[in-house]
């Protein structure tokens, strides 16, 4: 099946800064796609080019196979939910939602029916007559969503959709957005700097760094098999052990060897990477010994910081609540072990 959106070698410069530097992506019909990156990674610029508010300096953007690179925003079957929500302050909730349909010159009866249906979906029907300044942040967010969705766009673009909400509401809305996307069956492209949000909501994630794609994959792929050291560091927590790459592993400064499954293509100065939750107490295929320096209790787990002669940075491991009962105390000597297949090697 042909992808809904194809981005081909898109470049966008602002003066001497290249915000988006040759990005190519294909986004499948019905996907919940996340553009994930730190600020300045070019993710918002890329989204604004999809909406039509920025023109690429090079490259093409295709929608259903048709070139829309130069199509103005009001002629694209694509809608954007703004980070600030950008609700019209002088219109009621219902008028805000109806606006896009009025622009399509739909019959009045159809507009009324679709607005009511949409407001029902986002549970805002009782507030249809309110103005934006009479709504809470979460309600405004849902109006913005309804206003963009009611037009049944081919693709819905969301710019940091949950950025303005508090942590608890954000957690609820992540699942709510996912449910809604499933219900309406529209392709969502969401920009976020929050890796947790991307992992929870999206079924595909593109990690951007300085205007370039670092990795594209499912949440599991980018978490379990990060393609680069940056991706490994950006998503979740990661221990990095610097050393010298060898066939089948990495030689640590203290002479110890870290094994990897399969031989990495890396040579020379490198780092071995392992997730804190993959490290267990006791020897394994890879073993380090050290002294516990700090303990941090997080409710669900207990994080240990262990100082080892193998690395300057302490190694972090996470013990589950069950294991935490028999956890060592600060100053105790411990042995850490993990499997070769949980280890990755990146160029330093």
């Amino acid at each position: 099946m042909r992808p809904v959106v194809e981005i081909e070698g898109v470049v966008r410069r602002f003066g001497s800064v290249t915000a988006v530097d040759g990005v190519s992506l294909a986004i499948a019909e019905g996907a919940f796609f996340a553009l994930l990156g730190a600020s300045g990674s070019g993710k918002t610029t890329l989204l604004r080019m999809l909406a039509g508010f920025e023109m690429p300096d090079a490259g093409r953007i295709l929608l259903d196979g048709a070139d829309i690179t130069r199509t103005p925003p009001n002629r694209r079957p694509v809608n954007l939910m703004f980070q600030s929500y950008a609700l019209f302050p002088h219109m009621t909730v219902a008028q805000n939602v109806a606006y896009g349909l009025e622009m399509e010159r739909r019959p009045r009866a159809e507009i009324r029916a679709r607005v009511a249906e949409m407001l029902e979906t986002v549970q805002l029907l009782p507030l249809a007559g309110r103005r934006p300044d009479q709504l809470s942040g979460g309600q405004r967010q849902r109006v913005a969503l309804a206003r963009a969705l009611v037009k049944r766009p081919r693709v819905l673009l969301l710019d940091e959709p949950l950025g303005a909400l508090d942590a608890k509401l954000r957690g609820q809305m992540q699942l709510e957005l996912k449910r809604l996307q499933h219900e309406v069956g529209i392709t969502f492209i969401v920009v976020t700097h929050d890796q947790d949000e991307a992992l929870v909501m999206a079924d595909r994630i593109a990690i951007l760094r300085a205007g370039r794609l670092e990795q594209v994959g499912t949440p599991r792929e980018v978490y379990e098999s990060p393609a680069t050291r940056y991706a490994a560091d950006f998503i979740g927590q990661m221990n990095f052990l610097p050393g010298h790459a060898l066939p089948g592993g990495l030689r640590l400064p203290d002479g110890g060897l870290v094994r990897v499954a399969g031989e990495g293509p890396v040579q020379g100065e490198a780092v071995a990477a392992v997730r804190p939750e993959r490290i267990r107490l006791g020897p394994g295929e890879n073993t380090l010994t050290g002294t516990v320096r700090a303990l941090a209790y997080h409710g669900l787990d207990l994080q240990l910081q262990v100082e080892t002669p193998a690395a300057a940075e302490p190694v972090t491991l996470r013990l589950t609540a069950g294991e935490a009962e028999t956890a060592p105390g600060i100053g105790e000597r411990v042995t850490l072990g993990w499997a070769a297949r949980d280890t990755r090697i990146f160029p330093a």
Partner: peptide, 14 residues
């Protein structure tokens, strides 16, 4: 808030 101008254009207005 100039973003409402962009929002209007995004929703199909000239």
């Amino acid at each position: 808030d100039w973003s409402i101008v962009e929002a209007s254009s995004d929703l199909g207005a000239s």
